[in-house]
Each structure stands twice: as C-alpha cells, then as structure tokens.
Nucleic acid binder design. Structure first.
Lengths: 255, 255
DNA sequence: GCCTAGGTCCCGTCT
DNA sequence: AGACGGGGCCTAGGC
C-alpha cells in the first residue's frame, strides 16, 4: 500500500476487509470484484442476489455497484457520509450510508476476486461543448442568421410562474417574443414549457412563442400548432460555427 | 487468462494492448486503471486531459470511463458496435464506436497501472419495488382510502395530444376525473402535464384534474391552484401496504 | 425506428 | 436547505 497503486488477487474475506478498512479513507480510487449480493433502502428499495459484481469507491465518497450487464449500476450512492466494513459468517459486508436523503446501501460478498486501488489519483481537466447553453447564446447573438428575423433579446433564463424561460425579446413589429431552445429534437414537454411561459407573460398584447430546435416530433408539432406557437428549425453546425468561428472543424464534420 | 478472473499489474503499453485485444470480446468484465486522456464526439462533444482514469468494459459492450471524483462517468458508451485497440507513440489507444446515434469515444493511456478482468460473470437477480407504477396501481384500486372519495377508474396510461395521462375515472357526481401520480414531491412540470391532459379531454363538461403525490412544491401548488386543479397528498407507506398487505415491513419502517 | 415518461435519475445554479 | 431544468441523460414500453 505504499506505491501509487496496488492490487491484491484472491484475498480471503478477512484480508479483503483489512485492506478495505485502510483503503476507504477517501484517498484512493478502489475497485473490488467478487461474488456479492446487495440491498438498498432509501428513496426506493431494491435487492440483488449473489452474482459477480464490480464495486467502485471513489475519493469523495461516490459508490457504484455494477453487475455484469447493462450500462447503469445496479446500486449506487452519489456520496457517502459514513462507511462500515466488517466480516460476518464468512461474508465481507460493506455498508454505505447517506444523510440527505437518508439512504443505505449494503453489500455482502462471499468471494472476492481482487481488490485494486490507485492512491491520490490525479484529476485531469474536462471540457464539454455543444451544449444547450452554447445554442442559446448563438440564438441570442445571431437571431437573423438562425431565426430568419431580427429580434432584440433583453432577458435570459427568467423566472416565471411556470418555470424558467430561455429567451425574451422584441421582434421588428414590437411583439414580445419568448424563445425556448432545445439542442435535440423537441418533444411535447418542450411545447408545454413554452406554452406556460407565453401564458404567464403579464400583458394583454400578443406574445409570440418560438420553439427553436434542430427538429421536432410530429406530436409536438401538432400540439404546438394547436396552441398557436411557432417552430424554427436551427442548424446545429451553423449555430456552433457562428459562436466559435475558428474552432471545432473536426467536431462539426462529424455531425 | 484461463481462470475465472485475472489481474496484471504494471503492464507495458504493448502488454496491455495485447491483453485487451483478447479481453474485449464480450466474455469478460474488464477494468483498466491508468493515466489517460479522452475524447468524445457524437450527440455532444468533450475532451479530457491526462489524469488517473478507471475504464470499465462490460460484456454487452457498455463502456464507462471514470475520473477520480464525482459520481457520473466522464465519458461512456451505453453500447458499442465496434472496438479498436492499438498502440501509437507509446500510448495505448482505445476507440469505442456506436452506430445509432453515431458516436465515438477515444481513450489514450500513457501509463497503465493494472488490467483486471472477470470472465463469464454470473448475473444475480435484481428486484426493485416502490415504483410510480406501484403507487398508480394502489390509487386505482383504493381511491377511497387514498383520495378520500370513491372514483371509478376506467383507463390508465391513455394517450392524449399532450401526452399520456396516468388515470381516468368518474367521481360520485359523474364528473370526469384525470389523475396524475408522482412518487416523489410534485413540481411544476407535473402540474403542466396534468393541465394539458385536462385541457385535452374532449368534453364541454367540467373535468377535474387531481395531482396525487406525497408532497408538492410551493411553486407547483400555486400553479396548480391558478389552473383550478386539485392536489391530494398520499401516504406512500399506506399506499404500499394497501397493495401488498403482507410484505415489506422493513422497507416501510425505514421510510 | 421514433416517441413518451420514469428514475434511488445526477447535476449545476439560483433563491 | 429547496427548486427548477438540462443531460451525450439511460431505460422500458408502445407503436
């Protein structure tokens, strides 16, 4: 346990427990593979029977228990306030508690294939782009190019009784325009959002509601038209290139 | 690689590549820890710089790349259609492709701490309970106990122009009642859903909309009242015990 | 394949 | 703390 990382293969239950007591101090990224069952109680409740499992415990207290299949973990704990390691009747038992919301995840392993860890792991930087935020900024800055008309925007992410609307503006004829932006194909819930924002705008005058997205589902289109709202198709490639003219050539080509 | 599992500590880049070419055939749950960077392009785009990473590849093709912190993976692929393993300029490079949607995740590792695997992992059974489905069934079967009045329900999960409504019924006075059920505290989007269902019901007569949940947010309550809709608090413990009288004592006690 | 809605969603951000 | 909406959300169920 002195190096940067370590692995112990086929530990006994007691050896595994001893190792984990030292390792689960928040300094290491720990992986335990073995034959385990699990129990969760909290916002919901679940049980899993014995089977091969992969347990990951990260510095910061995130706990993730994977079964052999699927993408999502069987059980997890986004953060942990208290951890217990013990052995009982030939089982390695782990308990991970969380305060708010009150939850507990219990894991019991009858065999442990290996315990592996990396100490004081270094965190690289991470950037994500092409988000809805990027698209909203592009629309706000370049309405003529992206919506086909000039709109002067005066507010973003403004609170209304129905929620937060993306963009507020005034069109060439002086109409209030409320814009809801979606980075992906717009569905009915996007229309419901926009409908609420338009209805909540405190005026007797006509308020235009525009849904801006690369595409819209048929059902959403019908709902939108029945409510007198508008849809504007936006080209993601064009939007992002307006925002960052010099960047992302390869990313855009991929789209 | 003959046993049920295996671990190789501190492999060279070439050794790691050789191992992974054999291991990434869908027969094993594989873990790679090392110093890696990553790139993703698809529905969005992201990059991460060199740092300690934990790569998990499951049978079935799920790929999960964790950094040292947080609960969610930095990058992932829910399923993979094609995988490439190579070495280039002292780096282990892995590429995971997906068809629909078209996405690619590229990982490059300059050091590999360990490669570990479990072959032909056995899957245990998994049960989850106390879902929204359970609650909806409880309300449909026991309206008097849970809503305080007799309602005869005649439809569930029925399609409307605004989406799918949870329950349709008729109350003691012959009014149509539409019920939206939430297992957790109801928010504004729940009210918007219910509002749409009520509005879409094809009748001139009064239609009651009832939101059923263990709790409701203040903003949602205001929106609900302004729209003439009703709220009924439901006790999860009671609902669940009505559904399964003989079961779940311990789970309920925890709530 | 698309679409809808749930989820122990998680997560940031703002009040 | 709660609350609201985004997310490469994922996943199940319909069509």
């Amino acid at each position: 346990m002195d190096g940067r990382f370590g692995v112990v293969s086929s530990p006994t239950i007691e050896e595994a427990a001893g190792l984990l007591e030292k390792l689960l101090d928040g300094s290491s990224m720990v992986v335990v593979a073995g034959v385990c069952s699990s129990e969760y109680e909290g916002r919901g409740a679940s049980v899993s029977t014995e089977g091969d499992k992969l347990l990951i415990v990260k510095p910061g207290g995130a706990v993730i228990l994977h079964g052999p299949r699927g993408f999502r973990p069987l059980n997890w704990q986004p953060s942990t306030s208290h951890t217990e390691v013990a052995t009982a009747e030939g089982l390695l038992t782990l308990k991970f508690y969380r305060r708010t919301p009150r939850e507990v995840l219990k894991i019991a392993c009858s065999s442990v294939w290996y315990v592996a860890w990396v100490r004081f792991p270094e965190e690289g930087a991470f950037w994500m782009y092409m988000t809805e935020d990027d698209l909203r900024r592009a629309v706000a800055l370049h309405p003529r190019e992206l919506l086909g008309e000039d709109i002067r925007f005066f507010a973003e992410e403004k609170r209304t009784p129905s929620g937060k609307a993306d963009l507020y503006g005034v069109d060439g004829r002086g109409n209030i325009v409320i814009v809801e932006v979606k980075r992906v194909r717009a569905d009915e819930s996007a229309v419901r959002q926009l409908e609420g924002y338009v209805r909540d705008y405190p005026t007797q005058a006509k308020v235009r509601g525009i849904l801006v997205a690369p595409d819209i589902s048929d059902a959403a289109r019908r709902l939108l038209e029945s409510r007198g709202l508008e849809f504007r198709r936006v080209d993601l490639k064009k939007a992002y290139s307006l925002l960052k003219p010099g960047r992302g050539r390869s990313v855009l080509d991929f789209l």
